[in-house]
């Protein structure tokens, strides 16, 4: 069975303006992400993980090479993709209730009944039914991030692009959102590109981990995670394979951790 790629990068180069002049962030990067895959982009701080994700989301333009989504060159945000930002407090509209925030991406395009049903479904998937009519600023950080995820889900994306979505949350909230995300992905079958600097999070969630390294960044390694699904915060993290991958990845980042 051949898996049709959802994302494809060919010799992708990205330059960003900086104070001393233009800086090359990503150089000659080749990448292929199959449909329905959960791929984590892992790397140290400042390696260009977010830049790569933003280029694939059409929010940052690349200088040369190709960034392709479902056979289409990405130059600006493309239908079928939804982005989840780390900074939920600024990504949500604080004057709209949870329900109307979730509806934001789809409300112009659907009839009322259909809209309600999609919004309800997205809110159910993140478990916020009780807070449908509450304002986001009244909710905890974890709940606000769930609102943002629900807003992306309401658009029924075939690809979900997430930029360190759990980076600002405490450990317990993070674990519960990880499990929720895995359940959502199992239900929707969406391709997920997940940027993180958390090694254990990357192993726990992914099918494949892409290791970014260097400046300009390139893919240092591509690691396949062969852990059974559904995953479990306790059982999965005690499997020998999990521990082996954890060892391998910490080893790979050893000099960065000790630096």
């Amino acid at each position: 069975m051949t898996i049709q790629p959802a994302f494809q990068c060919e010799r992708l180069c990205i330059d960003l303006p900086g104070a001393p002049g233009v800086r090359r962030i990503i150089e000659d990067l080749d990448l292929e992400v199959g449909r329905g895959q959960f791929v984590s982009i892992l790397g140290g701080s400042g390696t260009g993980k977010t830049t790569l994700l933003r280029a694939l989301a059409g929010l940052t333009s690349h200088s040369s090479g190709r960034a392709v989504y479902e056979g289409r060159e990405v130059r600006s945000p493309v239908p079928g993709m939804a982005m989840v930002f780390q900074d939920y407090a600024h990504a949500l509209l604080m004057w709209r209730t949870v329900r109307r925030n979730v509806a934001l991406g789809v409300e112009g395009r659907l009839r009322n009944g259909e809209l309600d049903q999609k919004v309800q479904n997205a809110i159910r998937m993140v478990g916020l039914e009780r807070f449908r009519d509450e304002y986001p600023w009244r909710l905890s950080g974890g709940m606000q991030q769930r609102v943002q995820i629900a807003r992306a889900l309401a658009m029924e994306p075939s690809a979900l692009l997430m930029d360190e979505p759990f980076g600002a949350l405490d450990a317990m909230t993070k674990a519960s959102l990880q499990d929720q995300l895995l359940a959502v992905q199992a239900e929707t079958g969406a391709t997920v590109l997940f940027v993180t600097h958390d090694i254990e999070e990357a192993i726990y969630l992914s099918n494949t981990i892409i290791l970014l390294k260097g400046s300009p960044a390139h893919i240092a390694r591509r690691i396949t995670v062969d852990l059974p699904r559904p995953r479990d915060q306790i059982v999965t993290k005690e499997l020998p394979e999990y521990l082996r991958l954890r060892h391998q990845l910490f080893e790979a980042f050893r000099h960065e951790i000790h630096a």
Binding site: L59, A91, L104
Partner: peptide
Amino acid sequence: PTLLEAARSLQL
């Protein structure tokens, strides 16, 4: 900036 990007990525 995140608000502006969210608006862009929602393709409104």
